[in-house]
Design a binder for these strands. Structure first.
Lengths: 141, 141
DNA sequence: ACTATCATGATAGTGATACTCAAAATCAAT
DNA sequence: ATTGATTTTGAGTATCACTATCATGATAGT
């Protein structure tokens, strides 16, 4: 059993929720994706193999993934939430192209100490942070 | 004449747009605000003294301010765009409280070099960047 | 003052997200 | 395996922020 299936299964049990076919099917599709997906885009992928699964279910399931730490919601300013894998991934920022809309990632190792220092100076308790650079990617510039 | 009025007036002239009462009235209200405002919130402030001014005008005028560099659009993840002054202000990030929703600011001086380095490594042309830390502020923690 | 053009403000439209509910699925207890 | 309580699903609808439309009104050059 995949690590991510285990995490989802445990979370469902802990919360008294049910292990449904849809939830694990959507999880597999989500993990297979290479890009940052919106609920709409993931639904399109899911529906290719499984046209019965509705948008609502995909949408709610993505929220569920976010709750149990399997996914992170990211927002690139185009008015639709996107989701990315959040297991076994180091902190990273996004380079978002204004032309093609694709998002590259960059590691944040060198910035993390700075972030911690800033927060403590303001008496602020960090839950999470987002670092985004908007501009033009190599291809589009 | 205020510096910001000058900037707006020049921009309007350059673009062949008209100098209207509303545009300058909204600008004054915008500049007087201490917080990060949404179009809705600014409209509420404007309407106190001037109930005739509609939401559409406030909304469009904020876009106009953004075009001419008087304002910046920021998004704190609550699904509504907010605007902040952008003249004579150094680059800064935001500390956004998950409880009260208020946003403090922090300076980014030490991070800017890092950002430039990251971008050049990816062949990415920076237009702008956003650095946001979500968590609990001093009061709410 | 006249006229072309732009701006305004009310209304309606759009798209993403969130809610509702009847029918179906899950799961613990028998 | 059957039952029954409870959750989930999927379709439809509602809501919210934002955007477009358009008739009326304001602006600015002549």
């Amino acid at each position: 059993m995949k690590k991510e299936h285990r995490i989802l299964a445990d979370y469902l049990k802990q919360k008294g929720l049910k292990q449904t076919y849809q939830r694990f099917f959507i999880l597999d599709k989500f993990l297979a994706a290479k890009r940052h997906l919106s609920a709409d885009e993931l639904h399109a992928m899911v529906r290719e193999q499984n046209p019965k699964i509705g948008f609502s279910t995909v949408y709610r399931t993505l929220k569920l993934f976010t709750e149990c730490g399997l996914a992170k919601e990211v927002n690139f300013g185009d008015g639709r939430a996107r989701f990315e894998r959040a297991i076994d991934r180091s902190q990273h920022g996004h380079l978002i192209c204004a032309n093609c809309g694709k998002a590259e990632e960059f590691t944040l190792g060198s910035v993390e100490k700075t972030i911690a220092r800033i927060a403590s100076r303001h008496g602020f308790k960090i839950e999470r942070f987002r670092f985004k650079i908007y501009g033009l990617c190599k291809k589009c510039r």
